[in-house]
Simulated assay, not measured.
Amino acid sequence: MTIVEERPVIDAGTLVGVELRETIAADVRARYDHITAELACRGVGQLLAFLAAGAVSEQPLSPSPLVDDFWHAFILRTKAYADFCHDTFGKFVHHQPGFLDREEHGGGKGLRARTVDAIQAAGYTVDPEFWPELDIADCSQCHANCHNSPKHADASATSAG
């Protein structure tokens, strides 16, 4: 008989204190008026889950466009971001945008699928609404050429994604 012990899924939002979590959420909301307080709170959690998974991953990971917006907001709080990285990971987690070799890393969608897998493997909650291009959510929060984005080629042909 095999006993499978499931470990509880961790809300990565708890990796920072309430005040910092609210500050990052408020910074994102100040820039993007369509983001609700509830979505912003969840977004901070997804950002922190991404950072935690990336800090231990041997392969490159990539945030979704929406998670990247939260990362930018956190990075602008330079001291808080540097302290968080040092205290939580023992190192600074750099934001290095760029294009990785598609053959080697699978392109953006492949990287983000790997990221979601890494977040789950690290024991953190994955909120599907923050990873829309992976077809694990039905959302319209961003306009990053998702399946129901106004920028998507099929958006004019259909009324909903």
Rank of each mutant, 00 (worst) to 15 (best):
G110V: 00
I35N: 01
G13D: 00
A52E: 09
D27A: 15
T125A: 15
E38T: 14
F130H: 03
G54I: 00
A52F: 03
D127I: 10
T115E: 08
D33E: 14
D11G: 01
G54Q: 02
L48H: 05
D127R: 05
G13C: 08
T78C: 11
Q59Y: 03
A26E: 11
L61Q: 03
R114M: 10
I119Y: 09
G98K: 07
V126Q: 01
T115A: 10
A52W: 05
P97S: 02
W131T: 01
E104A: 15
A49D: 08
L76Q: 13
W71N: 02
L66Q: 06
A73Y: 06
A52Y: 00
A118W: 11
F130R: 08
E129L: 14
F89L: 01
A82T: 12
I24P: 00
G108W: 13
T125C: 12
G17C: 02
Y81M: 06
L48M: 05
V18K: 15
C85S: 03
F74K: 03
H34F: 15
D27K: 15
A118M: 07
A52L: 03
A12Q: 10
L66D: 08
A40M: 10
E129M: 15
V67H: 00
A80F: 07
A122F: 04
F92K: 07
A40Q: 12
F74T: 00
R29C: 09
G45K: 07
S64G: 06
Y81T: 01
W131P: 06
D11V: 07
G43N: 06
T88K: 12
Q120K: 14
T115H: 09
D68V: 02
Q120R: 15
P97V: 04
R42Y: 11
P128I: 01
A80L: 10
I136V: 13
P132A: 10
K91R: 15
L100A: 09
Q46T: 08
T36I: 06
E38K: 14
R77F: 09
A121Q: 14
K91S: 10
D101E: 08
S62D: 07
V18G: 11
G123Q: 10
V67I: 13
K79G: 09
S57A: 13
H105E: 07
A53R: 04
S64Q: 05
E129W: 02
R102F: 13
A55Y: 02
D117L: 12
R31F: 04
C41V: 12
F99G: 10
E19L: 12
V116C: 11
D117A: 15
V18P: 13
K109L: 14
L20A: 01
P63C: 09
Y81V: 07
I75K: 11
V67M: 05
E129S: 12
F130K: 08
V126A: 08
R102Q: 13
G90V: 03
A82Y: 12
H95A: 03
D127L: 10
H94N: 12
T14W: 06
H94A: 15
P97A: 04
D87L: 13
S57K: 01
D101Q: 02
